[in-house]
């Protein structure tokens, strides 16, 4: 968590946000809806600089690799074409041994893989992304959003696994 900016002032702000949100819910006697929850958790993460850390880490990955403007765009288009090709191939029943064994989260990770490969995403970025998903998972779990909880848990697991594999490969 060293790369996430958690100063004392931000800690107080974050705690205040959560406490006020909790009391607002108690006073209004209402339950969390999905959108409000996502907004609150996003704000909480933004206060702690998690998103900033993610974007900085991604920018640093791009800076380290030999990208220029045109190859960045080309890789982005290739990633987009990859997403569409996976959707269509799954629809047509291609590589049933592969796609049939995937749940939704694993399929999303499979869609994310080329993006990580093409943009040479480092293990640090993957871990920050996994931590973000982890925190969302915790809040979804507390608020009984079962499907999203499962999905985010599996995604966070895959991202951690990817970071570990990448580190092994480098070592």
């Amino acid at each position: 968590m060293l790369f996430i900016d958690g100063t004392r002032r931000k800690l107080v702000q974050g705690m205040l946000l959560l406490i006020s949100y909790y009391f607002a819910l108690r006073i209004l006697n209402s339950t969390n809806d999905f959108v409000t929850l996502v907004i609150i958790v996003s704000l909480y993460l933004a206060i702690f600089g998690t998103f900033k850390a993610l974007f900085c880490s991604f920018a640093s990955d791009l800076g380290k690799s030999k990208f220029n403007k045109s190859s960045f765009g080309k890789n982005l288009i290739l990633s987009l074409l990859w997403v569409c090709s996976v959707i269509l191939a799954k629809k047509a029943g291609a590589s049933a041994w592969l796609f049939d064994s995937f749940d939704d989260a694993t399929l999303l990770f499979f869609i994310y893989l080329p993006f990580a490969l093409l943009f040479a995403i480092s293990e640090r970025t993957n871990i920050i992304l996994a931590i973000i998903l982890w925190l969302y998972t915790a809040f979804f779990y507390l608020n009984n959003f079962k499907l999203t909880t499962d999905l985010f848990t599996i995604l966070a697991f895959w991202l951690f696994a990817l970071a570990v594999f990448k580190k092994f490969y480098e070592v």
């Binding site: 190859s71 290739l78 090709s85």
Partner: peptide, 23 residues
């Protein structure tokens, strides 16, 4: 530039062609 780019291009092409041929 890299092997990963070739890999992605090859797999994407295979998936698209499989989809069109099977349809």
């Amino acid at each position: 530039g890299s092997t990963s780019e070739w890999l992605v291009l090859l797999t994407t092409s295979y998936f698209f062609s499989y989809f069109i041929i099977r349809t």
